[in-house]
Design a protein around this nucleic acid. Structure first.
Ligand code: NAD
Ligand code: NAD
Lengths: 235, 235
DNA sequence: ATCCCTTTGTGAACGTATGCACAAAGTGAG
DNA sequence: CTCACTTTGTGCATACGTTCACAAAGGGAT
């Protein structure tokens, strides 16, 4: 291997790695709070629930921040991962659909903890509009575009019924939003350059049911299946 | 303790495929409701937001249920996928931690729609215990084991603070639960044979932030990377 | 300075997933 | 029947992801 400076500009981090970085970050933050100064790949991997070789390979994509024979400096690694994930800047998030779920999300403290700030709440229901939740006023959905632009919102969380999701999606994309987190159980179609991630309770349960059923099958003499698998990264 | 994942198995459906089956099912259900009798892989793939070759390969793992020149029978395919996922039986689900999120989950109608039935709610807070939510009484966490066994709960949803999650997890596993859906931002450690899936808002936002930051970098002359990617299956 | 111990970073082998491209299989018209 | 047309199911190439295993690097003791 040729040792070169351009290594740091090789910014092609695999998607599977990106999905695990927040996990490492969380484990590291816990360690920092407990006063741990350095950590080995073995220990960090254990805390994050992954294989240590995988962890080392993941971190190697960010650069060479470890010290052989010692491990990684916790604070420094927190900084490097945070920077890579873009958490050293402040992200304004809007939540659309302030029903059961939207309310829970708006009240969720874990949001703010890492660079994310809930900057706007929207709903179509006149009875909900004007409510005060977590120090924010719920705006009418008609104000969507204006408020998003005024407050510099760059990430939108959709928590409306499925029927409204695509329309909300189209509208926020039209004003330049390119990152969407969708809780509605529907497939959003978006132009290239827009990232959609989805959280779908129903799908998770169905996947669990699939494996659960298969465990039961075992008793009736079916083939013994692989088990104990935790879900991995999303690509 | 090396975990072996035997691949050579007859009914071995790839994990990536399993994760997409619920998507197909949802699309098919919508079509059935609109009176569509048959569908081509092309159309179904479009509705589910995947590549049609991938869809055909996924379905081929279940069997050969299509008709060349025609497509798939919608109702029949719904039945086959439902059966494969184990949705033809009834799953009793318990929710632990009836706070903001737990309440939203308990009130969520989409649960029941597909074989899942919320059968028990638990909380440690005396002010919450005894509340009536969605027709269910919130039980004290001390009753966890007894109620789970009595009502035949096989899937547990954890919506407690992170600090309580591992303990709840250990307790439900001790009474035979092997499927857990975890909303708490913590890595659960479980014995082999137990499936844990996690839903983590914070991780999703951080992944979005990573890509969002990268989009901004483009202006400063960084390499233009592939975008527009939607998240894939979790393995 | 030398040796021993620990731990990183990565080459290489293997496993899994994706998507193209096409033969095979089916429909229906004449 | 044959022919034209549609669409499935899959072989194959390629890309991506995981894990093992070990040389190289660093720390510290003597
Ligand atoms: N509650 C859950 O646990 C849960 C779980 C998984 C998925 N989901 C999904 O999340 C979404 C929200 O769930 P919920 O339980 O909060 O539903 P909900 O009905 O309680 O809330 C939906 C809110 O969206 C608002 N709304 C409707 N149309 C709108 C529009 N065009 N613009 C802006 N706001 C609009 C409604 O006024 C309502 O306040 C649904 O798609 C649901 O399927 C919910
Ligand atoms: N609210 C959200 O939008 C959101 C988003 C992502 C993740 N989460 C996570 O989901 C979990 C719940 O979030 P929330 O906002 O509902 O919090 P919450 O504080 O509103 O609710 C937590 C509930 O759990 C109960 N509880 C605490 N210890 C318990 C125990 N040992 N046994 C049983 N019940 C116990 C509490 O009494 C409370 O009712 C947290 O881990 C949170 O980080 C929440």
């Amino acid at each position: 291997m040729i040792r070169r400076l351009p290594q740091s500009r090789d910014r092609g981090i695999p998607e599977a790695t990106v999905a695990r970085l927040p996990l490492y970050l969380r484990a590291l933050t816990g360690m920092a709070e407990r006063g741990v100064a350095t950590v080995s790949s073995e220990d960090l991997a254990l805390a994050a629930g992954v294989n240590s070789a995988k962890l080392r390979k993941d971190l190697s994509h960010l650069g060479s921040y470890g010290t052989r024979g010692v491990g990684y400096d916790v604070e420094y690694l927190i900084y490097q991962i945070s920077r890579e994930l873009g958490l050293t800047q402040d992200w304004a998030v809007a939540i659309v659909g302030i029903g059961n779920l939207g309310r829970a999300l708006a009240n969720y403290g874990g949001f703010v903890s890492r660079g994310f700030r809930v900057a706007a709440l929207f709903d179509a229901n006149p009875e909900v509009v004007g409510d005060h939740i977590a120090g924010l006023n719920v705006e009418h959905i008609d104000e969507l575009e204006a408020v998003i632009e005024r407050r510099g919102v760059s990430i939108v969380v959709i928590a409306t019924p499925a029927a409204a999701a695509q329309q909300i999606c189209d509208r926020v994309i039209a004003v330049g939003v390119t990152s969407i987190l969708n809780f509605a159980p529907t497939v959003l179609s978006v132009p290239e350059g827009v990232d959609v991630r989805k959280v779908d309770l129903s799908i998770e349960l169905q996947i669990l049911a699939f494996h659960e059923q298969r465990k039961g099958d075992r008793e009736s003499g079916g083939p013994v299946m692989a088990e104990g698998l935790q879900q991995g990264a999303s690509a």
